[in-house]
Structures are given as C-alpha cells and as structure tokens.
Design a protein around this nucleic acid. Structure first.
Lengths: 186, 186
DNA sequence: CTCCATTGTGCAACTAGTTGCACAATGGAG
DNA sequence: CTCCATTGTGCAACTAGTTGCACAATGGAG
C-alpha cells in the first residue's frame, strides 16, 4: 500500500501527468520506490475515484493526451496519516545472498562473474548518488526540506557503499577459496 | 521465482517437513528470504509435481501428519542452474525512506517515534547476528562452506550496521531541525 | 499528403506474496 | 474417557507487482 503514497508525494511536489510521473519515478522517487508506467496509470485512476487527486482542467482529455493531476485536501490528509503511522520494516528479500547460500551447497561455479557485475552496477549507482549530492546539496541549501532530502540521499549513498564494500570483500574471499575445497557434490 | 530455490537450498542442507522448513525460514534462511508456511506448503506441492523433490517414504502420509521431503537430482540441477544465472539486482523499495520524503512535504509530525522504534529493532537484529557470528564462526570453522556462510552473515551484520548508523544520524538531524522550520503546510 | 517514430495512456493476464481461515492428529489435564 | 491446546498441513480469496500488448495523438522526414 505504498505506491499511492509515493504518487501523492510526487504530485504534491509538483502536479504531473502519468508520463511525467513515470519519468520522475525513474529518476528520483524511484531510487527507493520503483514503479512501472502501467502501475502508475492504474493507481492514478484509483486515487481519482477515491477523491484523493483530480485531473487538472484541460481541453479534451482524451487518449494520447496529457492529463495532469493535482492532490486534493483529502489526499494530502491521507498522506500525512500514512506518514505518521507506525510501520514495521519489511523483512529482507535478497536474491544474491540466497544464491550465495545455495552456492554453499551446489557449488560456486558461475556466480563469481555475476558478483563482479553487481559490483560494477553498485559502483555506478554510488557515483550517481554522489554527483547528485555534490550538485544539489551545497552548504547553502539548508532548509528543513533540504536536510530531509539530503538525509534520504545519504541513505542511498550509505547503502551503495555497503554493497560495494561487501561485494569487494566477497570477491576477495572467492579468490582465496582453494579450488579443491569449493563445494560441489553431496 | 526465488522461493522454490530457497526451499531447494534448505532441503539440500537437510530434508524436512513443511513445518520444519517454516521454522528454519524463521531462523536462518528467512534472514534474507522470508516466507510464510502457506507459501512453503504451496511451493512444496509444486516442486513435487515438477519432480524436483519427493516425499520421503513414510507410513500414512495423511493430513496432520509430518511429511518430509528430499531433493531429487533434477531439483539439484535446477538449483545449480539458477545459482549460476546472471540476475539483476532488484530495485530498492523502502517504505521508511518514502515516508521521509513524504514528511518533507506534509510535515514530520509523528514519524520521529517510528524512527526510534526502527532503530531499536535494527539494533536487536544486529545483536542477534553478532551472537550467531560469535557462536558459529570461530577461527577453527574454516571450510569453503563456512567461509561462504560467514560471508552471508557478514552482509546481514553490515546491513544492520548501516541501518543503525543511518537511523542514529537521522534522529540527530531531527533533533537539530528548528521546530519552526519543520515543513507543514503547502 | 503520407508514413512512421515518438509520446502518452491504458487494458488484460499473469505471477508472487499475504491474510484468513479450515481441519486433522496428538498428547496431556481434568 | 473427554476436552482442549498444540502441532502440522493446506485451501481460497485477495493484494501488489510484472509483462505484454493495444491504440490514440503529434510532428517531422520523405
């Protein structure tokens, strides 16, 4: 039940059409809540019938025509309610760790390359976050809003730092695993 | 498509019944791939019809009766195939970060308590992982299997370290936010 | 003018995960 | 013996997310 709230947040930051939202999800909100354009359109429909958002008046809102939405007071209230609500952290589900555990049983053949690939991806993401930080968060931008957003970006940076560090360590370990002792059969 | 592979891994480590699997998911595999007992039973059924596992011979495998499964060669092969396969890291979806972003727009009221609660939960999890590390990974246990499992546990420890560190930092920031400047209205 | 790539919106079917139950076997308390 | 908590297995309905398309409008290339 988080996608509607992600959309409400994005629309409060700036009223947008479905496609604009999709782009913004790809660039910024999507760093911690990804969504496809199909999900977004579906949810926009729901939010509209619930009276949480409304289409901005426009001429001819037909298919293939930009239709921008803005948040109504009810939507803002719902977002505030949801934000303040206590929520448990959802348990981790990570395929890579699972695969490593499987590799401990069926053998590590093949997985090393993919670890390396993941490392590259995470390094790239980290670099991107660092650029954003350098660009958007100078010491001058220091309102409460800026600080909160910086905090969120920091989480992204720290997470990617964790992954790159851990993957580097993992690859070192793999290098040290004596070939003969690599798990394989029963 | 990871749950079946999580189950195959667990069953290779030790043949088990549905309930035993459920318990093991709560304790160990579940740290990075959680699943409910309903999911597990459903998947056991599928894996059995696919010929990846089979029920260990037992008298009277009726309802309410323990039924243990073991992995067949086809299942092991499938797990090895899946493990070696390249897979993209799935994009992050984190509610807490999303809520923080929402808070930057609708106000931070209420969220601070929950950050504190999350901090406690993550500290607890971290302590648990550290205990496991101290108990199960002495310098003596040093086969390739041990090293891989230790690596996985390390990921858990580092992740929880990230969260506790970041949450602590976030709460400090919140303390510094001048009440007056906390975002609220439009 | 015509075609075709691009932009924009959306439906339908599917897969994965969650929630809420149902019900059988077992063993100990009374 | 009877009841009831516990252990164990499972179905059904639902929610959330993914995949694969369809189709309308627009504008520039030819």
């Amino acid at each position: 039940m988080s996608l509607p709230h992600a959309i409400l947040t994005a629309l409060l930051e700036r009223p947008s059409s479905g496609l604009e939202l999709t782009r913004r999800f790809d660039m910024s909100i999507g760093y911690f809540w990804s969504a496809t354009h199909q999900q977004i359109y579906r949810e926009l429909g729901r939010l509209e019938t619930q009276g949480h958002i409304r289409a901005l008046p426009a001429e001819q809102p037909a298919r293939g025509q930009k239709k921008a939405y803005e948040v109504l007071p009810a939507g803002r209230a719902e977002l505030a309610r949801w934000t303040a609500e206590a929520q448990d952290p959802k348990p981790l589900r990570d395929t890579l760790l699972l695969r490593l555990r499987a590799a401990a049983v069926v053998g590590t053949a093949g997985i090393e390359d993919d670890l390396r690939r993941h490392l590259t991806l995470h390094e790239r993401q980290l670099a991107e976050y660092r650029e954003i930080e350098a660009r958007d968060f100078g010491p001058d931008r220091d309102t409460a809003q800026d600080r909160l957003r910086h905090l969120i970006l920091r989480a992204g940076i720290d997470l990617e730092t964790f992954w790159t560090g851990w993957l580097t360590h993992a690859l070192e370990e793999f290098g040290r695993l004596p070939d003969a002792s690599r798990p394989r059969g029963e």
